[in-house]
Design a protein around this nucleic acid. Structure first.
Lengths: 168, 168
DNA sequence: GTACGCATGTAAACGGTTACATGATTTG
DNA sequence: CAAATCATGTAACCGTTTACATGCGTAC
């Protein structure tokens, strides 16, 4: 089985929590990584299963009550995670921005820009608020990632602002 | 059938070319939109088929020789495309940057930054060269999209440079 | 004329998404 | 205690990707 980015998100969070149910993962993902890499909750049920089948997670099913599934990382899982983070990454991300595609194919710039600008501004505000809350947090990874988010949003805003024809 | 961004890329390019074979699409995509939204060539064979089934493209098969498939946009297709570009877009793109994920999950910043920096710089150089060639082109859509690419790369470079510990 | 690379296409596997379903809590 | 919402899970579909396969030019 091939490990995907989603695999590492799950692996990373289960490792971070020590022990986790899919729902805990869902919540945690939602308020963190989900901002720049989201996926539906169903995947947080299927992915741990795949990882368990591969021996990277250990699955334990609650008896009685909700019969929740509870996962923890195996040694092999921890090794896989460490190896992944330790490997430098040469590939570049793609933009995959549908608004940009529309622009590419002839959409009226000002029209696209207006709504995008609004949406990006809202996102930036959200990030700024979040940043205030976590800026001194340990570990630093999430904070650094959020800093990219901030920079990205500011850049996007500057871009769309220009296309929207707003004054500087 | 649901139309995906890929659908519109195909629709848009077939419309632009008037008439196109999958291979022409592949080439065109590769040097343009492929920079920020790529997909394997196989999809440029299956997607036109889907669109033809939906009545948005017209398929014509060459007799003799390579028996190429040749597509052109139908009126319904053109309508769908216009409608799509004319609809403002509220959704935000996600970053989906694997390097950033690694950082999030504890990778050593300087290590990740070094290779990312190099890769982003190469990409920027490529964009700059491309920009020189097309900056005055009509239609403007591709040029505008490329300008976002330039801004995005410059922003990424600034970010990774800081993490790499390089001097300003 | 043979080798290599460009051109062209199909099939199968798999991940990701959508949809469906229902049990447990909380709140009014 | 009813209604709404949170929590939990499975199944099926479908787009994307990977892999396989082969024909056609062109250059040495």
């Amino acid at each position: 089985m091939r490990l995907t980015p989603v695999s590492y998100v799950v692996l990373g969070f289960v490792d971070f929590l020590g022990e986790a149910t899919p729902y805990q993962l869902k919540k945690l993902v939602g308020e963190s990584v989900g901002n720049f890499w989201s996926f539906p909750h169903a995947q947080l049920y299927t992915e741990p299963e795949r990882l368990a089948a591969a021996g990277l997670l250990e699955e334990e099913r609650e008896q009685g009550g909700r019969r929740r599934k509870r996962y923890r990382v195996t040694d092999a899982g921890r090794r896989a995670l460490r190896e992944w983070t330790a490997t430098p990454h040469r590939e570049l991300p793609e933009l995959r921005d549908t608004a940009l595609l529309k622009l590419f194919f002839g959409a009226e710039p000002a029209a696209i820009a207006a709504t995008q600008l609004e949406a990006h501004r809202a996102k930036l505000a959200e990030y700024e608020a979040l940043y205030e809350r976590i800026r001194d947090m340990q570990p630093r990874g999430p904070v650094l990632a959020l800093e990219m988010g901030l920079a990205y949003e500011r850049n996007a805003i500057a871009y769309w602002k220009r296309l929207a024809g707003e004054e500087a």
